[in-house]
Design a protein around this nucleic acid. Structure first.
Length: 221
DNA sequence: GCGTAATCTAATCAACC
DNA sequence: GGTTGATTAGATTACGC
């Protein structure tokens, strides 16, 4: 896929969490548990977090990525075996579907107070894609875990697409598969007033013109 | 460069009012 | 039943080695 020239501008450092490098022992433990249950619930994830000294949110992400890897491999394997001779056993087809593993419960629903919501809303209005630094700042302001703030922003973006002016999302059908994000430079000063918006956020990381990128900017004014 | 952690969307489940 | 937090698959980005 040819990347369009405007599809991606690299963000200032600090926009993403620093990448975690797992130790071999941690990798081993995660793999072992994955064999038993690729869908660990919150209790298991928290126990692992304590035992391996890895944040629970990183364990959740590891399992997400690992399921993807596993599925991709098994599909690759079965695609090969269609053209080639069948490969007996060894390769576990994804027989581990979710139903078998949902016993271990979900995280308890986090209740977010009106005052916490108000802080998050203010930050959201200024930046729908907060950096890790901003999320952590918001976490300290609200007392909520950073991972819950990340989820809050995800849900919020999904349910409140843009201030999406009046019209329905319509254009861009000309480009069926737009690049998922573009970044838009923003004056740091505009953000300084907002609690929870750090100086890292000198770019707005916005979805590719579902609406209009420039109108997103005008929302700041 | 590769492998993979991090992030995203969209869809869905489920707790709480 | 509506709202909204939690989880999922899948696609993509970008960083550490």
């Amino acid at each position: 896929m040819a990347p369009t020239s405007t599809s991606k501008i690299s963000l200032p450092c600090g926009s993403r969490r620093r990448r975690l490098v797992l130790k071999p022992t941690q990798q081993g433990a995660l793999h072992a548990l994955f064999q038993q249950n690729p869908y660990p619930g919150i209790a298991t994830r928290e126990r692992l977090a304590r035992e391996l000294d890895i944040p629970e949110s990183r364990i959740q992400v590891w399992f997400q990525n690992q399921r993807t890897r596993q599925l991709r491999q098994s599909r690759l394997g079965s695609a090969k075996s269609q053209g080639q001779g069948p490969t007996h056993g060894q390769e576990q087809p994804p027989s581990w579907t979710q139903e078998h593993f949902t016993k271990d419960g979900r995280r308890k629903r986090t209740s977010i107070s009106p005052s916490q919501t108000s802080i998050l809303l203010q930050a959201f209005e200024k930046n729908r894609f907060p950096s890790i630094a901003t999320r952590e700042h918001l976490a300290s302001l609200t007392g909520l875990p950073e991972s819950r703030i990340q989820v809050w922003f995800q849900n919020r973006r999904a349910r409140h697409p843009g201030q999406s002016r009046s019209g329905p999302v319509k254009d861009m059908e000309a480009h069926p598969k737009p690049s998922p994000y573009v970044t838009v430079p923003v004056e740091p000063g505009l953000l300084a007033r907002v609690p929870g918006v750090s100086s890292f956020d000198t770019h707005f990381f916005v979805p590719h013109p579902k609406g209009n990128t420039s109108s997103n900017m005008s929302a700041l004014a």
